[in-house]
């Protein structure tokens, strides 16, 4: 398990999600694929935190507790992306429901024609 391996897995998950976003017609599966892409990104952030040192630890400055904790920046980033993804999913489903109520359809091609 090296950083290259983990980044490959995260890239594969991101690519699979991208395939789903473009190839599916139902909005619900498009949102599912978007969540897959989010997860791929978070895996990369956590992998960088685990395998590469923070810049603060590489320079010759005297060691501070802040510099040590900056090794966990990737984890903090992962938490923020998770929170944004959760809000995005809630809003996206509200939009899908609103569209289903007005046009009885959840297909992307119908969404292009929807005015209100």
């Amino acid at each position: 398990m090296t950083i290259e391996n983990v980044l490959m897995v995260s890239g594969a998950l991101f690519a699979i999600g991208a395939y789903g976003v473009v190839s599916r017609r139902s909005l619900v599966t498009v949102i599912m694929s978007l969540e897959l892409m989010f997860n791929g990104v978070i895996i990369a952030a956590v992998a960088f935190s685990r395998f590469t040192p923070a810049a603060e630890l590489l320079n010759g400055d005297p060691l501070t507790a802040e510099a040590i904790r900056s090794a966990l920046t990737g984890h903090a980033f992962a938490i923020f992306v998770t929170a944004v993804a959760a809000g995005e999913a809630a809003l996206a489903f509200a939009l899908v429901f609103a569209m289903y109520r007005s046009s009885e359809s959840v297909e992307i091609t119908d969404a292009a024609e929807m005015k209100n």
């Binding site: 980044l7 490959m8 890239g11 594969a12 991101f14 690519a15 991208a18 395939y19 190839s23």
Partner: peptide, 13 residues
Amino acid sequence: ALIVAVLIFASLS
């Protein structure tokens, strides 16, 4: 979509 996904994966890896 398949081409795009393969290209994304190829460039990332």
